[in-house]
Design a protein around this nucleic acid. Structure first.
Lengths: 252, 252
DNA sequence: ACCTGAACACCGTTCAAGT
DNA sequence: ACCTGAACACCGTTCAAGT
């Protein structure tokens, strides 16, 4: 029982070799799966090449066998998330087909809250994202939208196509009501309108006071306002060449 | 003429002391101004505490006299940008007042392309941003919107309030037409709809082929679609308590 | 009391040395 | 040929030592 540090190390090494004589070889899929799980659990800022390698019991440089660099790692992680979006319902009319699929994308994004930030930080879509967009464009075209209108529609719906909320600030969702009351009193003098709206949102649902607003409702409200607007333009056979200024998109 | 390295250093130091016996003391404003200018010139990723200190001829730790940490630095930079937005035109009806101010915000953001990304990465609005939002809410309220509808409207317009475009991918704006032609041919097989829309956008404006789409037009198209939608709901005196599901925001 | 250099604990990635 | 440890060039920030 007089092991030196070196001897202990050798024993541990030997034990590992016996217990796990050959650990499953690292594949791209296992790497991406571990990265997604790590980001889900500990946040995207915890996903570094070094920590991820640790997680997998591998030396950092080993990851570079499967991804060229960190950017490719993040791209691969996004593709995993986009892969979770349901395929389009077939047979449905364009509006509900688009609506259902976007809500499915939103559910996938809520499962992986880091994904929207990573997506925003990219400049080029991955082929998987491009395929998703192609499919969504197809739903509009099949629904009778002209190429021209579909183009503007895609720009307008923007990142909401993938279920982003892109709000300006994260509602102080789960804040201690007492703390919130103090904040409201303090801010009230300077920002009366903000407080008016914030308090109205809290009182609206009578079940729980101060739980903030219903994000799902807000998302669907905005989505439906957009879809209704698109439908109206489609019925008018709107085209950008009819409209000299962008000032009234619904002019006839 | 046999200066050693050390002696040269001393000479330079002395010369600087004579030329600039007292450089203007570092203030928060000078710090923020330099940071904004550096970000404008070299991109936000070039803005590190160390490089910024170098820029100002100051030791890195000197910055911490004026900002608590890097997050506060970025917040201050955003406030500079938001400070450039024009005040609301008074006397105008709500729609054009909102419209003009948002387009002014967009111009400010285009002058500082890094600002939208920094804004998105924040979870809490600065007091300056809060004041801007308060003022915008005020325009809707003065225009006859109920508190309830204004709340949903603010969520819907989201970051577009500050002039963001939040598109999914940056259009390959200024790409060599030949390169683009090759890309289109290669992608055409897999993503026919994407190509159809991309090529249509290029041909639309007959002046220059392949210059991509008009971002300003797309922004105004989307903005006006939203404002028209808001106006319609206001005229219907829409309220979320009338609408059981979010499925048709324009139901009567 | 103020200022500041060195140091700490991280990054992503390169590179050369060892097998 | 493959694997991998050390090293490089950065970060933001802490801290203690010097003035």
């Amino acid at each position: 029982m007089d092991f030196s540090g070196l001897q202990e190390e050798m024993v541990v090494q030997l034990a590992q070799q016996i217990k796990a004589p050959r650990r499953p070889p690292l594949t791209r899929d296992r790497l991406l799966g571990a990265a997604v799980a790590l980001a889900d659990r500990a946040g995207i800022e915890a996903v570094s090449m070094r920590k991820l390698a640790d997680e997998l019991g591998v030396v950092p440089m080993a990851l570079y066998k499967h991804v060229a660099n960190k950017e490719q790692l993040l791209a691969g992680m996004l593709d995993v998330v986009v892969g979770e979006i349901d395929p389009p319902a077939h047979g449905a009319e364009w509006k509900s087909a688009v609506r259902q699929r976007i809500l499915s994308a939103r559910r996938a994004l809520l499962r992986h809250p880091w994904a929207s930030g990573v997506m925003e930080s990219r400049k080029n879509p991955t082929p998987v994202v491009l395929a998703y967009m192609d499919s969504m464009i197809g739903l509009f075209r099949a629904g009778g939208f002209t190429v021209n209108l579909t183009h503007h529609v895609m720009h307008t719906i923007g990142s909401r196509l993938l279920g982003f909320t892109q709000e300006l600030f994260n509602d102080s969702q789960s804040v201690d009501p007492q703390v919130q009351a103090i904040m409201i009193r303090e801010l009230g003098g300077k920002f009366p309108y903000v407080v008016e709206i914030a308090t109205a949102a809290s009182h609206e649902d009578e079940s729980v006071v101060g739980q903030g607003c219903d994000d799902q409702f807000e998302f669907e409200f905005a989505l439906d306002l957009l879809l209704d607007g698109f439908e109206r333009l489609r019925e008018q056979t709107w085209t950008s060449t009819n409209s000299q200024s962008g000032s009234d998109v619904t002019r006839r």
